[in-house]
């Protein structure tokens, strides 16, 4: 939980909000349970249970309000972190296979197991696979996207600072799955120029 990109950061915010809401709601249920058992010891009561209160307000109205708010927030957020209409600064083709990752840049260069990107830039990844299903995931930068043979998926990532970020395959892909990892190196301006000029 140490986001290093706008997408991962937005998801982290979402998570803290949802966690707070969950703590409140579960707290409510546990308090009601506790009080119900404490009440039980007291004298006979004749008040009939109010279906309107329990089912109408607590059971129906409360979750409707909470969930609507959450959905609106999430749909808005989801739209923001997608590859939007604004053009990316760079598009890289990602191909997953047993057991490696190759990254093809617009100039035709290919790097294996290391994805080079400039920091502070919008990168669109075009993801596919050649054999079985894999999933591209750099936890600190963005959510994951499956690499599926015969299908092409897109994912936008952005690193807001230079650095090296670990990436893993998130879909079980056979006995080499554990070591099916890669790195993302986000370069600052100068070293990105070095990478571009240094033809391998």
């Amino acid at each position: 939980m140490d986001p290093a990109g706008p997408s991962a950061a937005a998801i982290a915010d979402l998570w803290w909000w949802m966690l707070a809401g969950s703590v409140l709601l579960s707290g409510l249920v546990f308090v009601i349970l506790f009080l119900a058992f404490r009440r039980a010891g007291r004298a006979e009561r004749s008040d009939a249970p109010s279906e309107k209160l329990w089912l109408g307000w607590l059971g129906l109205a409360m979750p409707v309000v909470v969930l609507l708010a959450l959905l609106t927030y999430a749909l808005h957020l989801g739209g923001r972190i997608l590859p939007g209409p604004d053009a990316p600064d760079l598009t890289v083709e990602v191909t997953a296979y047993n057991w490696g990752w190759s990254f093809r840049y617009p100039d035709g260069r290919v790097s294996e197991r290391v994805l080079h990107i400039p920091a502070d830039a919008k990168i669109d990844l075009v993801i596919s696979a050649t054999d079985v299903i894999h999933s591209f995931w750099v936890p600190r930068l963005a959510g994951k996207m499956d690499a599926i043979p015969g299908h092409v998926n897109e994912l936008r990532i952005e690193a807001d600072r230079p650095g090296t970020f670990a990436g893993v395959c998130a879909e079980y892909c056979g006995i080499g799955h554990v070591d099916h990892d890669f790195q993302v190196i986000a370069h600052d301006g100068e070293s990105w120029q070095d990478f571009l000029e240094n033809r391998e």
Binding site: F37, P49, L53, G59, V64, L67
Partner: peptide, 27 residues
């Protein structure tokens, strides 16, 4: 996503029906 969230509502109705039953009775 909306449909998945929606299933929480009938579940919540049941949970509060059970809580209300416990509240009304002498558990």
């Amino acid at each position: 996503s909306a449909a998945s969230v929606l299933v929480a509502i009938p579940t919540s109705i049941q949970i509060f029906a059970w809580l209300g039953t416990l509240w009304a009775g002498r558990p």
